[in-house]
């Protein structure tokens, strides 16, 4: 059985706002019967204030799908439509004191239903662009479709690269065989992919590599370092974290990881990924280290 939090169990056994809402003026139907989830979210929005006065749901789904729906309605009641659209699937999971990784898609469904219901209220049509595959990485809840998309978009060749781009495989490492299979499949589909060409030793950066001047000034180096940090920031922020540059001492770059990144079991892997990018961007071997390791003067 899943390890559900008490909050999930409580919302499952006593769902709030369940059942049809007669006076709804925004209805969102999302989900797929194939993967065993479907959710209808019904909103009663005050047209003058745009405040969501009532929110009801009906869910075909598992315990956490029902609990996520219940939580969503509780969260958005009393919010304006615009404020409600800012609710993320992580907010829903947090409200429930967390969901098992296999079940995060239940909270995603809640957010999509919200977008669909708001679109319906505004007379727009919402399009589901979210496709889901089998869960590959259980540590970070990354599915096959996401890995495949990222591998294709960035022309990735190794498990390490996949880990850097998606985090998949960065935890217990049990899914590396699954990631290798996706890599092999995508490689087979690439033009000339059938040929056995060895993967590049130094993986190509997604951005075109900058011409590397033979000798960088300190100012130029720090500028490049800041650019690299800026490029990884969106990924960290997606996980409620951030990174700051503290000091550059020769070949050593000291940074602090903040928010969810600090103390995360992935701290070393995250720094490793950042280091890889630094090396590519600077064209020299550098070390990226946590500021806590900075030598005391």
């Amino acid at each position: 059985m899943w390890e559900y939090s008490d909050k999930v169990r409580e919302h499952f056994f006593n769902p709030r706002n369940a059942g049809p809402l007669e006076e709804a003026n925004g209805i969102g139907d999302v989900g797929s019967i194939k993967c065993g989830d479907a959710l209808r979210l019904m909103l009663k929005v005050n047209p003058d204030t745009e405040v969501i006065e009532e929110a009801h749901f009906q869910t075909f789904g598992c315990g956490s799908a029902i609990a996520s729906s219940s939580a969503l309605t509780e969260i958005i009641k009393g919010m304006t439509v615009d404020a409600a659209l800012g609710v993320s699937n992580q907010d829903i999971a947090d409200y429930l004191d967390g969901l098992p990784p296999e079940k995060m898609h239940c909270s995603v469904m809640g957010r999509e239903a919200l977008q669909a219901a708001v679109a319906n209220y505004r007379g727009e049509v919402w399009k589901d662009d979210h496709e889901e595959g089998a869960l590959i990485c259980k540590c970070f809840a990354v599915d096959a479709v996401m890995i495949e998309d990222v591998v294709k978009a960035n022309n990735l060749n190794t498990v390490e690269e996949v880990t850097f781009y998606t985090k998949a495989g960065g935890g217990c490492a049990a899914c590396h065989e699954g990631i290798e299979e996706i890599l092999a499949r995508v490689k087979g589909e690439r033009p000339g992919g059938g040929e056995t060409s060895p993967p590049p030793v130094c993986p190509a950066a997604p951005e075109t590599a900058k011409p590397k001047p033979s000798k960088l000034t300190s100012v130029q180096r720090i500028k490049i370092i800041e650019e690299v940090l800026e490029s990884v920031r969106p990924m960290l922020r997606r996980d409620h974290g951030d990174v700051d540059l503290v000091e550059v001492q020769g070949k050593k770059i000291f940074v602090t990881l903040k928010g969810a990144c600090s103390g995360c079991m992935m701290e070393a892997a995250t720094l490793g990924g950042v280091q890889q990018k630094m090396i590519e961007a600077l064209g020299e071997l550098v070390q990226v280290l946590p500021a806590s390791l900075m030598p005391v003067e």
Binding site: K34, C35, G61, C62, A65, K103, G133, A134, L135
Partner: peptide
């Protein structure tokens, strides 16, 4: 699907 962790 939900009891197995797969989507099918």
């Amino acid at each position: 699907a939900c009891t197995s962790g797969s989507l099918e």
